[in-house]
Design a protein around this nucleic acid. Structure first.
Length: 778
DNA sequence: AACGCGGATCTTTTT
DNA sequence: GATCCGCGTT
């Protein structure tokens, strides 16, 4: 059996810490996972039962990797450990104990797509769908649930009335369908924790609890962890407050920063030796993160002195930027003998991948996009799962509605409405009502629709027989795709997309086969469904990149490392994003952007290339962006002179220590704290809807000269416009007419060119936002 | 009831 | 530019 892997003194201290709370502050690249894995191995060798160890990771992929490494160290014992994400762990606990709080053990898990669908249906049912989008509502609900609060307590805020009207319906529907959403998984376990019987059991269940990425836990997760470690008091948290990048979904870095307050006798270990990056890269990353206040002071250091200087390349457009990156990749392969797998291109937003992908293809570079729309989010996959879920839970109305006419089998709106009406009157679920309809019990249905409903019911009943006959999960899926007519339907379409969908379904079948093998045929449909629900896009890509360049968002790159990292789209407004966030302080938002930059830079082992584009197409509009303020923070000695654009005034965005924090807009602040005589400018006040420099999309020629000019103080925000000004259309106050909404008065106009939008008060219709090109002066 | 098209929205990040 | 939704047409 292996001995403990090579460890430095701090790592060893963390690994060999005995009982009691332990906090490991682990900077980027300091061997955090190694400590975690070795600590678990250490504990088990000291006599702790594998089944009494709970390790919580951030992603399923991280869990799988941890389990694999433990298997290498400990053998089969690793299989008995509880290793998983918060959500997966909670799902497992709920399968065991959920019935205690009224949750059937075969509950299904609804992802946010399912969630949104239900909310959307409910909103439409109440005629509120023109007021709030399902997405907004879902975000709102999650915000409460992330904090462990009841959405029904929402009051006073904008849209809270609607929230309170819809949420109970949503909650009831989930209960009726034996389903939980992501947040419920955690909240229901908290509920269990309060149960007089199960609660104490859970508190004592695990001898050791270890939590990775602790800076990204939310309040509910924190309470969970507290409870689960309550009796034995062996809680080990590992994290880095500088890498907290998920506060937008409720993560509270305070959980880490204040850990010592809740656990006064905590042993603290700081890991500061970085084994990943060169000195140059660390210097740059440290300089960036140093901007933030309120952090555990850490000083990352490395023995890898010097290193290649950081490159900064500025391009004219996002296309040129992608072209530069593609050529640089080729160049690094031929000049330095790098492989594609050595390299990653990181970006702030998903949308940026398109231009990159185009150039990768053009230069014939193998690439893969991580976190692309999840396999399991694809329509054909979700449709198939909806069939399966309806088998398990005939009362799952949302599943019924999803697939009753997919593939199209002639069951239209009116028929469904009638079935729905019958269901409501008889107080039964939709599937039951459809059966009644097929039997002819629903008076309003004529022979045609009745037959069609009967055909659908036959499909479901037939599949239920297959399930009852003890078919494997793979077999069940094959039968579903066949009997539902899905395969035939797609084959008949014979389009590239339809063929894609077919191969996705084939892939689902083979995943199910793997599942069947893995569980010796004992795995149930419920278990397979649960696994699929919790398996996200990031997890889907297996760690190996098979000789391809990796393209991904910075968020997806957390925890990974590459010899060469390209960080593109370094532009103010894009990165940092500076997008207004609901209810968030702009200062906090900026600090998170800084951390994001820190995370991105510290992914690089040897080479870091930064790039920005002067112009970028966004929402079909061309925008002129200034280089990111983050570029200014990179110390001169780290940067290759050649690539660095001409010097310009340095901006500093942080107020004086102790000074006012950022206000949202309209206030000018000065902060001459930079050594280089910084000049604060108004950049921060820019938002997406006001005076962004914009010009007409159809006048490409204007970009080169004007866009390349450096911003100088006092000239900011000039609007460039090529061609005639006439494209602008009506101003606020004027009367206009619209083909479908009639006449109305313009209240506000935003954007320009093709994308110019008007907020119009239409007589009898109300407020609408309309594209300017669709109205005429009245 | 299926299909096509006009129109609005989207883009920050995900278990 | 892509996608998604609703509406009008067949």
């Amino acid at each position: 059996m292996h001995r403990l892997e090579q460890l430095n003194p701090e790592q060893r201290r963390a690994v060999e810490h005995g009982d009691g709370p332990l906090m490991v502050l682990a900077g980027a690249g300091t061997g955090k996972t190694r400590v975690l894995v070795n600590r678990i191995a250490f504990l088990v060798r000291r006599g702790v039962q594998a089944r009494d160890v709970l390790a919580v990771t951030f992603t399923n992929k991280a869990a799988a990797e941890m389990r694999e490494r433990l298997r290498e160290l400990l053998g089969v014992a690793a299989q008995r450990m509880w290793i998983g994400t918060f959500h997966a762990t909670c799902a497992r606990l709920l399968r065991l104990h959920g019935e205690r709080i009224g949750l059937p053990s075969d509950f299904t898990i609804f992802d946010d797509d399912d969630q949104r669908r239900i909310l959307s249906t409910l909103l439409k049912g109440k005629g509120l769908d023109d007021q709030v989008t399902a997405r907004t509502l879902a975000t709102q609900i999650d915000r409460y649930k992330n904090r462990g609060e009841d959405p029904m307590d929402a009051a006073g805020g904008w849209g809270d009335d609607i929230l309170r009207e819809i949420y109970p319906l949503y909650r009831d529907q989930l209960a009726r369908e034996s389903a939980v959403d992501f947040n419920d998984l955690l909240l229901k376990v908290l509920e269990l924790a309060r149960d007089e019987e199960v609660g104490p059991h859970l508190a004592a269940r695990f001898r050791h609890v270890l939590v990775d990425e602790f800076q990204d836990t939310n309040r509910v997760q924190y309470r969970l962890v507290r409870h689960l470690s309550q009796v034995h008091g062996n809680l080990c948290v590992v994290g880095d407050d500088d890498q907290s990048i998920y506060s937008w979904r409720g993560a509270e870095p305070r959980n880490l920063l204040d850990f010592g307050r809740d656990y006064p006798d905590t042993a603290v270990v700081k890991l500061e030796q970085n084994y990943r990056s060169t000195q140059v890269i660390l210097d740059a990353a440290n300089a960036v993160i140093a901007q933030n206040r309120d952090r555990h002071e850490k000083a990352l250091w490395t023995e890898i002195a010097g290193g290649e200087p950081i490159l900064w390349e500025e391009s004219d457009s996002e296309r040129d930027e992608a072209d530069f990156i593609a050529r640089a990749i080729k160049g690094l392969v031929s000049a330095e003998g790098r492989t594609y797998a050595d390299m990653a291109v990181l970006y702030r937003t998903r949308a940026q991948s398109r231009a990159l992908e185009e150039q990768m293809r053009r230069y014939d570079i193998d690439y893969r996009v991580v976190g692309d729309i999840s396999f399991f989010q694809r329509r054909e996959i979700k449709d198939t799962l909806a069939y399966l879920r309806l088998l398990l839970h005939p009362n799952a109305d949302s599943c019924f509605e999803r697939i009753v006419n997919v593939p199209t089998r002639g069951i239209g709106k009116t028929t469904i409405e009638r079935v729905r009406g019958y269901a409501r009157r008889a107080n039964i679920d939709l599937y039951e009502a459809a059966r009644a309809g097929a039997r002819g019990d629903v008076g309003a249905l004529s022979a045609g629709p009745r037959k069609k409903l009967a055909a659908f019911v036959d499909i479901i009943e037939g599949l239920r027989d297959v399930l009852a006959a003890g078919a494997s999960v793979a077999e069940l899926i094959i039968q579903t795709v066949e009997r539902s007519g899905y395969r035939e339907w797609l084959e008949k379409q014979d389009t590239p997309e339809a063929n894609d969908r077919l191969s996705n379904l084939a892939e689902l079948v083979s995943m199910a086969s793997d599942f069947d093998d893995e569980t010796d045929g004992e795995g149930t449909l419920v278990e397979f469904d649960a696994r699929v629900s919790l398996w996200s896009s990031v997890d889907t890509s297996d760690g190996r990149s098979d000789g391809a360049v990796t393209l991904m968002t910075i968020h997806a790159a957390k925890g990974l490392e590459f010899p060469v990292v390209f960080l593109c789209g370094m532009e103010d407004g894009l990165f940092p994003s500076l997008r207004e966030r609901e209810g968030g302080d702009l200062m906090d938002a900026m600090e998170e952007e800084v951390r994001l930059a820190y995370v991105a830079m510290t992914r690089a082992r040897e080479r870091l290339v930064l790039s920005n584009a002067r112009t970028r197409r966004q929402w079909g509009e061309i925008r002129i962006n200034q280089p990111s303020r983050f570029l200014d923070l990179v110390p001169d000695h780290c940067m290759a002179v050649r690539a660095r654009p001409a010097p310009r005034p340095v901006r500093s965005y942080l107020p004086e220590p102790g000074g006012r924090s950022w206000s949202r807009r309209g206030q000018r602040q000065r902060a001459d704290r930079s050594a280089r005589g910084a000049q604060y400018d108004e950049l921060d006040q820019r938002t997406y809807d006001d005076d962004m420099p914009v010009y007409h999309a159809d006048a490409e020629s204007g970009v080169g000269d004007e866009g390349g000019r450096r911003r100088t103080p006092g000239r900011s925000g000039a609007r460039l416009r090529a061609g005639v000004d006439a494209g602008d259309g009506p101003e606020a106050g004027s009367m206009v007419s619209h083909a479908s909404f009639g006449t109305g008065r313009v209240l506000e106009s935003t954007g320009s060119g093709k994308g110019r939008r008007l907020l119009i008060d239409f007589a009898g219709v109300g407020l609408k936002t309309v594209l300017a090109r669709f109205v005429e002066p009245a």
